[in-house]
Each structure stands twice: as structure tokens, then as C-alpha cells.
């Protein structure tokens, strides 16, 4: 908002001590800006609130308007994908494996009311209402690149709250090394779950430092409106430097664990999908190249960026790791 840091991220080598230290300074500054945004939202009289006109809009956008959304310095200024494309070209196998299935077959899904069960290595486990999880935090618009493992990408104006502060409220213990997530299982509302295409319910996981990273988002909306069913209503994860399938949708369980949790795609095809699944143009999928991607709305493919262009912010999480082994 006040100081908008551009992040034209280039593909970089992974570890370099001096760059690494600069990154941390960048993160501190960025965190400061986020705090300022939160303050602006909490006390509009003290700081100038962001004019609503500055947030992403699309005339086709539908659904409940989310109030009090502030901009974020983490947003990219790349051209946004249309609401129509973001909501009609989805991989959400719970509603079917066709790209249009989630839009066409999610009409019966009831996202509200919604509860999330928190359990495992934390001091405050329990069943939390969606509002209890989200309301204490300021909603931010985060315009992120989304890179699918199928070599296409989009730019999506998510609305959500950073995951880290949410998780901290559950007071994870020192044994909480990972966070596991689970999607709701409702075959009566999710026709794709009636066939065992995948081993339902869908599960995903992050290392705790990945989960706590300021880029990691719990999204509840896009284009300023509540999430449509096909995009993971009412609450989903967004991890912009990882392939899209890591960003689990319609989350009902958050579990803190001390061991690496199983993840659906890596159970299904362990040679093709790893736990990390970081976007990496140098590590091909065994069956297709990951060096390029087609941005939806464009014809010619563009080069895929290391960590989806977020290397400056997140490469330090993987320093010393061979990303070809930990794919």
C-alpha cells in the first residue's frame, strides 16, 4: 500500500549466503507492511483504509462480497486471469476429472456452516467455526501466480489470511514439525468422490516452516467475493511456489504432526509426485516437461520460473536440499 515493493522475481540459484540474509531483511520489511495493512483494516480512523476501487474486480464475479479486504505487498502486478477462466477451468477431482466438472457439478455442495477440526501437536485442539478461524485476522488480497503440475498457469486475486498467524493461535508444540490438511468427504454432494479415482479424502501437508511462511495463505475468496464451490469453498490453502495440487481445497482438518504426513498424489504415484512438489523448471515430471507453461489466456508458452517466481522469498527454506531428490 504505502511502499509497494515490486517483486519481479527471476529464476535464481538456490543458496547464496549473502542473498539469503538480504531475503530475511526483505521478509522483515514486508512483514512490517503487512502489519500496517492489518492496522489499517482494524482502525480505519488511524490509517487511511485502502480504497475499495484498488482491489481486483471482474464484472462476472459472483457471490458474497467480502468486506474490509486490504491490499498486500506480496501481490504481483501481472495481468489477472478472468473470473470466468479461474472458475471454469479447475482441477478439483472431488467434483469430477474434467476441467469443467467442478463448475458444472458442484451446485449441490453446501460450504456453510463450516467447521475445521484442529488436532495433533498443539495446545488448543478443537472444532473451530470458520469465523473463529478467520475473523481475528485482516482479510488480504493476494494476487499470486498459480502453476499447475500440468504445465498451465494463472494469476489469481485471492482473498484470505496468512496461515502462520492462524496456526500460532492453536499454539503448536515443539513437536509440531509438519502440518497435515484434509479435504471434506461428502460423496452425496461431491459426485467425483463416488468413484475411487483418488484415495479419498484428499490429504496434503506442509513442513511447519513452509506453513508459517508469510506467503502461505488460507484463502476464503477470490476477486473480492467468497470462494465459489469449484475453487475450494469455503476455505482452502494457497501455496504459490508449489504446484497447484498442494493447495488443498475445502479443508476440514488441520493436524500438527512430528512426522511427514502422507499426501494424496504422492501416495497415488510416488515416482511422479513428491511431498514438496515445488515448482521447478529443472525437475521434469517423469512424463512431461516442466520447463515451460501456458499462462491461461495466452497461446505461446512461457518459461517456468524457479519456485514459480517466488525464489527470492522461499528458496532459503530449501537451502542444502537437493530438489531433484526432494521433488
Amino acid at each position: 500500500m504505502l511502499i509497494r515493493r515490486r517483486e519481479d522475481i527471476k529464476s535464481r540459484e538456490i543458496t547464496d549466503e549473502s542473498v539469503y540474509l538480504n531475503r530475511r531483511r526483505f521478509m522483515r520489511e514486508a512483514a512490517g507492511i503487512t502489519t500496517a495493512s492489518a492496522l489499517a483494516a482494524a482502525a480505519p480512523g488511524l490509517l487511511l483504509p485502502r480504497p475499495a476501487a484498488a482491489l481486483a474486480t471482474d464484472p462476472d464475479a459472483k457471490g458474497r462480497i467480502l468486506e474490509g479486504v486490504v491490499e498486500s505487498p506480496y501481490s504481483t502486478d501481472e495481468k489477472l486471469n478472468r473470473y470466468k477462466d479461474i472458475t471454469r477451468y479447475n482441477n478439483f477431482y472431488e467434483f469430477g476429472t474434467g476441467k469443467r466438472d467442478p463448475a458444472n457439478r458442484s451446485g449441490r455442495f453446501q460450504p456453510l456452516p463450516w467447521k475445521v477440526q484442529v488436532l495433533g501437536e498443539c495446545a488448543k485442539p478443537g472444532h473451530y467455526d470458520l469465523d473463529d478461524i478467520i475473523k481475528p485476522h485482516a482479510l488480504e488480497e493476494r494476487i499470486y501466480r498459480l502453476r499447475c503440475v500440468e504445465a498451465w498457469s494463472m494469476v489469481v486475486p485471492w482473498v484470505g489470511v496468512p496461515l502462520g498467524p492462524v496456526l500460532k493461535r492453536f499454539e503448536p508444540t515443539s513437536k509440531a514439525k509438519y502440518v497435515a490438511f484434509r479435504t471434506v468427504f461428502r460423496p452425496e454432494q461431491m459426485p467425483g468422490q463416488r468413484r475411487s479415482i483418488l484415495d479419498w479424502p484428499y490429504v496434503e501437508g506442509l513442513r511447519i516452516d513452509e506453513a508459517m511462511h508469510p506467503l502461505t495463505l488460507l484463502a476464503v475468496g477470490l476477486y473480492g467475493r467468497a470462494l465459489p464451490n469449484q475453487n475450494g469453498a469455503p476455505i482452502r490453502l494457497v501455496v504459490p511456489w508449489k504446484y497447484g495440487f498442494k493447495s488443498i481445497k475445502s479443508v476440514v482438518t488441520i493436524r500438527f504432526t512430528d512426522t511427514q504426513p502422507p499426501t494424496t498424489w504422492s501416495m497415488q504415484l510416488p515416482d511422479e509426485y513428491g511431498f514438496y512438489s515445488n515448482v521447478n523448471p529443472e525437475v521434469d515430471h517423469p512424463r512431461w516437461s516442466q520447463s515451460k507453461e501456458r499462462r491461461i489466456g495466452e497461446i505461446r508458452k512461457r518459461d517456468t520460473l524457479m519456485l514459480n517466481g517466488y525464489a527470492d522469498q522461499v528458496a532459503s527454506l530449501y537451502s542444502g536440499m537437493d530438489l531433484g531428490v526432494f521433488f
Binding site: 477462466d85 477451468y89 476441467k99 469443467r100 498451465w152 491461461i296 489466456g297
Partner: peptide, 15 residues
């Protein structure tokens, strides 16, 4: 061909 000229090929026309 018809769909190509009427925005009928979806979000990813090449696909």
C-alpha cells in the same frame, strides 16, 4: 472452427 471464433474453446483453447 465455430467455437474458436465464438469463445467456445474454454480457458485453454490450445489444449
Amino acid at each position: 472452427v465455430w467455437n474458436a471464433f465464438h469463445d467456445g474453446l474454454g480457458a485453454n483453447p490450445v489444449e
